[in-house]
């Protein structure tokens, strides 16, 4: 507990420092989440909300990465599995009962996740370019890769690229 508190304190301090730095360096804040084994991060401004969903209604005739639709507080959202979209192999058991609703103000949809790990302010410092052998088709959706292996998702691409947005 004390350790946690200490961590919280240090984090509070660092956060306080970030605000100052953000003004200076315009530091970015990322929401980190896990889908099965893959860790992803997305800039916080693209995330509208995080909710827990009990089940999805499958829609026939949609690509396989579209899991289905769900009713969240009266509004209908479609939900995708980002792992399937990026052709990442799926291993192990998953609950996928949490949904990040991404939004650019116009388009809104859900990305399913097993776990919301939390926010990170220091992630941007360790971003590096993707290796050259990465599939070019999806390169535009990935901004980079962190040292801890988290893939940084491009919120803009996710919300308006035709490859993912189906009307």
């Amino acid at each position: 507990m004390n350790k946690s508190k200490a961590i919280l304190k240090s984090r509070a301090k660092s956060n306080a420092l970030i605000i100052d730095k953000q003004i200076d360096k315009a530091k970015l804040r990322f929401l980190v989440f896990r889908v099965v084994k893959e860790i992803y991060a997305i800039e916080q401004k693209w995330v509208k909300e995080v909710v827990k969903v009990r089940g999805f209604t499958e829609i026939p005739g949609t690509p396989d990465f579209v899991i289905g639709v769900a009713n969240i507080r009266g509004a209908i959202y479609s939900a995708i599995n980002i792992n399937r979209f990026l052709s990442s192999k799926e291993y192990g058991l998953s609950e996928l009962d949490k949904v990040l609703i991404v939004s650019n103000g116009v388009t809104e949809y859900g990305i399913v996740a097993d776990e919301i790990i939390g926010f990170s302010d220091t992630l941007a410092e360790s971003i590096s370019e993707m290796p050259d052998n990465f599939n070019d088709i999806y390169r535009e959706f990935i901004e980079g890769i962190c040292k801890n292996g988290a893939l940084i998702l491009n919120g803009r691409a996710l919300t308006d690229n035709k490859k993912i947005i189906i009307d």
């Binding site: 916080q44 995080v50 919301i116 939390g118």
Partner: peptide, 16 residues
């Protein structure tokens, strides 16, 4: 606790 966690995340988003 899980729900609280999500709520906290949402709160942070709202705060941002």
């Amino acid at each position: 606790a899980d729900q609280s966690n999500l709520l906290a995340v949402n709160a942070a988003i709202e705060a941002a």
